[in-house]
Amino acid sequence: MNTVRALVLTGYGLNCDNETAYALRLAGFDAHRVHINALIHGSVNLSDFQMMVFGGGFSWGDDHGGGVIQAVRMKTNLGDKILEFIDAGNLIIGICNGFQTLVNLGLLPGFDHDYTRRSVALTFNDCGNFRNDWVTLKVIPESFCIFTHGIDRLELPVRHGEGKFYADPPTIRRLIDDQQVVLRYAMPDGRPADGKFPFNPNGSLYDIAGICDPSGRIFGLMPHPEAFNHWTNHPDWTRIKENNKRRQAKTESDPTVGIQLFKNAVEYIRNGSIK
């Protein structure tokens, strides 16, 4: 089968690149960790890849807002190349710090195919602190995001201090109406968290945890799918395992739903669509 190549950015304080590349490989990608400078100086070419990953971390220490300086660097040095990459029908995913970077670049929400305008923001958690916890996420059924295809609900860890999704009311309205909202923080039973802490861990408006662009090919989310790369990453795994043992049921094994998000991407790139 033809290989599907993904580029995972590294350097300048990014720190999830190893496990992200690992998770992508599990999903079937030929994943490469590429230093931001290698891309800027042209020793690596974006056009040799089908997916670009803005991963988690603290790019430039997050000193002037999460993802802000990374976005500036990218825009100044690679702006056009990234736009070409999008026009060529490729995929982009931004996770946590990567999501913050995408919204600061303007790649999201990408209203009216304008991939340069900042119209939404990820700002300081209402709880006033960095928070590491697992959350339940509800996938909006109408969403045409290619990554979440066939998934109804999932659990993933959040690990951020600036994850509150914020925009003015008309913008939020439009995201909802245009079905660009992909993931919402939810109660364990799948109902919307309705802003309730800690289910909605940061005070995001409309419980928004992830959005995509109008094409569904650019996806940003605060939670970390790559951190659920093995079934023992799940906080309840010892309970689930014991439960299954009693029911003589086999304990679920890989791939996890975290990997499934990336498998969808592989399938989309291979078939140009998703079944």
Binding site: N15, R159, H230
Partner: peptide, 15 residues
């Protein structure tokens, strides 16, 4: 505990 990222690197088994 919750202020500390204890899952980065994707290696967490017992938290």
């Amino acid at each position: 505990v919750r202020q500390y990222d204890h899952e980065v690197q994707g290696s967490s088994v017992i938290k």
